[in-house]
Design a protein around this nucleic acid. Structure first.
Lengths: 236, 236
DNA sequence: CGAATGCTTGACGGTACTCAAAGATTGTGG
DNA sequence: CCACAATCTTTGAGTACCGTCAAGCATTCG
């Protein structure tokens, strides 16, 4: 049974729906850092909920340029998009060791049928995911380098914080500068230089794969990205 | 009753579900070009299905920079995102006269409850919308100016074509260069110059608010954006 | 006919990209 | 435990793409 349930970031569910999720679920899976959860060019016969760890969704152009679409944290539901659209979609890669709950794709419709409430929750998650991509699109399209980095750091920090991954002001940050560059649409070199300039302002700090935000307000202002009040999230 | 039903781009529905949609629906609405369908900073108490016309979703930064997130065509379902996340979301603006089917937001859950199949379809639409935003994010993050324009033109042309809006090779194209610039994340001036260079290659043609694609293969190759096989779409 | 809106062009500057190479860090095998 | 490889970070130099500014042109509308 999923140990995330006790987390206040998620909505509690009545026993009947917990049972339904249990029978929907087909197992668990662990993926090591750097390995693929979903291959970019082969639709997955399974859906997943992230149970622990960091992962990310991405797409690559035919010449290898990569764009990270969004980051995945505990509670995120993966693979919906493939259910509904043919052809190549996106890849999902683990950034740390990731543990996942696995659901067979062909039981998705029966789940909607028997537990409409869970169907509604899944729509909730799909809509939330889309809003995050919306934000990332604004970043890539309309923010400059400094703003992009500031936005991304706050965004990732807040998300991790929200699901209880903060420890004394630090959150695990398993990404290298290439990941950051691919997420915000900059080159590796320019990302490095921007990161460096930001660091000298003393608004944040990296250490051994962890991130600490020293001056959240300054970063929020710089990135023009402010935390929004968030309701508890459904957890499938 | 919605005249889009006969369109082969959409899946036919049994009478029972049509009735359910009818009772979900609260009316119709017409919005003139340039007017707001959904205000960017005020959550809408309604959901919409586009019945005819072009619209677009967008977000603006606090200093006025605007990013168009996606374009909306007949059959697109609007407003889901607001259902599920607090705070400011996105705006929706009509680009032509747009007609919409209106649904009260508070009947969304009852609809899922009584017609799980329609709930499933709504999730389908949400996932498809997200995939489109994914593609736009790749464009803004990883394509250069020429590629961005090529991709956008093919993308909009294909989408319009798909819902039967093509007439002798032309589709209505009610956007000015500022719209294009805001969609692909370039400045107005640079968008103009890029458009001009593309036009001289003779791959496409604009005339009086209509667009014709002369060499789709060349544009697809240029933009590294290829049509994917598409199933019929559910229509709510 | 004048105002408003949108398109086009040139000039110039700056942000960000590419290329290249030198540190720093981590991991691995002898 | 050290040597070496592999990966990642950092820096500099040079360039190109794209942004900003400014002004002229075209079209539409009242």
């Amino acid at each position: 049974m999923c140990g995330l349930r006790g987390n206040p970031a998620f909505t509690p569910l009545p026993a009947e729906q917990l049972d339904a999720i249990e029978s929907f679920r087909s197992g668990a899976r662990t993926v090591e850092a750097g390995q693929a959860v979903i291959d970019e060019f082969r639709p997955s016969p399974q859906l997943f909920t992230v149970y622990s760890g960091w992962a990310f969704r991405y797409k690559t152009l035919s010449d290898g340029r990569r764009q990270i679409l969004n980051f995945l944290l505990p509670g995120d539901f993966i693979g919906l998009q493939d259910e509904f659209v043919d052809g190549q979609s996106h890849g999902v890669e683990a950034a740390t060791t990731v543990t996942l709950c696995v659901f067979p794709r062909d039981k998705l419709w029966p789940l909607f049928h028997r537990q409409p409430r869970l169907g509604y929750d899944i729509t909730w998650l799909a809509a939330r995911e889309e809003k995050m991509v919306d934000d990332n699109l604004v970043t890539a399209g309309r923010r400059n380098a400094m703003e992009r980095v500031a936005m991304l750091l706050m965004y990732l920090y807040r998300r991790a914080q929200r699901v209880g991954m903060e420890r004394d002001g630090w959150v695990e940050f398993p990404f290298n500068q290439q990941h950051i560059a691919d997420a915000i649409g900059l080159s590796l070199v320019h990302t490095n230089k921007t990161l460096r300039r930001l660091q000298q302002l003393g608004l944040h700090e990296f250490d051994g794969g962890w991130l600490r935000i020293i001056d959240p307000k300054a970063l929020e202002t710089l990135g023009d990205y402010f935390e929004r009040p968030l309701r508890p999230t459904p957890l499938i």
